[in-house]
Design a protein around this nucleic acid. Structure first.
Lengths: 216, 216
DNA sequence: CGACCTCGTTGACGCACCGCCAACAGGATG
DNA sequence: CATCCTGTTGGCGGTGCGTCAACGAGGTCG
């Protein structure tokens, strides 16, 4: 990815050049955070003039958004097959899959968690929110619910909170080393099971923010 | 706080001046995020030369850290009295207190959550981590445990994950409006109760990352 | 009451970074 | 080989931040 320097004015296809610059940006932003990386760094890593970065990506922030999108989708490797069995077994299987996945791409996943910090920027928040919703969809399919696509329901809200929980728990395992893998597994799977079977039914029976008393 | 402009070269006590600038910084950073606010903005809001901000706080980032510290501690209003009754009742009371507290200072709390985003900066992460640990201590006292001060135990790890869960759930209520207050209450209290009575005991009985098999 | 001293405060300088754009040149075409 | 298209360059203008020497408000002392 890192072009060996010195070659001047090499003319590439726009697509290839764009991918190359994006790759360098992913590598740098994945390692060092938004304002520790300058567009000059990225251009240098790609062996390219600084202006070209703006030419392909407009603004530094726009480039960053694309990088976060990449970081958030790469470690996904989407859970395609829903495990069999009762709910407990399915949750267990999905937890195993999840922990395997992030253990395999630890660096990328941790980088994604670091970069995908829903700060104040609304565009960045939107990108992260989209990734969250996708995760919620997975959990819903896991629970055997057809995901009313993207309703602002209490069900989805509770699961979004769970996603934050799961991420934090996984960070405890992978980054801080304060949980073993087995402990993390128990923490995530049991909490999700309880949430789905006990807590959420109660929540859904209570009156919502303004509408749907028992819609999910 | 916002000094009416034009007054030139007014000489204050260092403490007062420092507090004044910090106040303006809190107001601005609370509303607009790190790189949407320039030190010139802060200086202007305080009716002061830009250089003075650096004189009192060194770097813009150091100032930001102080602001986050303020934002994280202000909405605390520390839970002093532990409710009576069994665990369920105590958790219930504490949840009520928590939701009351953040409802009272919604703006400040949301601002704090926006600012206290554990991005890549290690110093910022440290400030946030400290606030998290304080919250975990509250929960531990709630559960009747004497908080082994700051051990890297699986117990604390699980509770840190819960803190992320609670914050996310509260945001669903306050910001997105996807949960009613009652629903949020049920979500937070029941999840914490289950965590304390069912999940954590199981976790603690499993082998840890390397040590304490059943220490908490 | 005026000279003097202290230290809070100022304004400007240097530097790094970003967005923009006119000019340049690689390489395909005829 | 001449010509055109367009990917690419390098520099210009503007902004924001950290530093520093100089300034002056306000108290002190003779």
């Amino acid at each position: 990815m890192s072009t060996s320097a010195a070659r001047r004015r090499e003319r590439w296809e726009p697509d290839a050049r764009r991918r190359q610059i994006l790759g360098c940006a992913v590598r740098l932003f994945g390692a060092r955070g938004y304002d520790e990386v300058s567009t000059a760094d990225i251009a240098a890593a790609a062996g390219v003039a600084r202006g070209l970065v703006n030419h392909y990506f407009g603004t530094k922030k726009e480039l960053y958004l694309e990088v976060v999108r990449v970081l958030l989708t790469v470690p996904d490797t989407a859970l395609t097959t829903i495990p069999d069995g009762d709910l407990t077994a399915r949750v267990d299987g999905a937890t195993t899959w999840f922990l395997d996945a992030i253990a395999r791409h630890t660096d990328a996943w941790v980088a994604a968690m670091g970069a995908a910090t829903p700060g104040r920027d609304p565009d960045l928040a939107a990108v992260i929110a989209e990734a969250d919703e996708a995760t919620v969809d997975v959990i819903l399919r896991l629970a055997g619910r057809t995901p009313h696509p993207r309703a602002r329901s209490p069900l989805r809200a509770a699961l979004r909170a769970y996603v934050a929980f799961a991420r934090s728990g996984a960070m405890e395992w992978l980054v801080h080393g304060s949980l073993s893998r087995e402990q993390t597994h128990v923490l995530l799977s049991r909490t999700l099971t309880t949430l789905l079977t006990e807590t959420i039914p109660v929540i859904s029976s209570r009156s919502g923010p303004s509408e749907q008393p028992g819609s999910w």
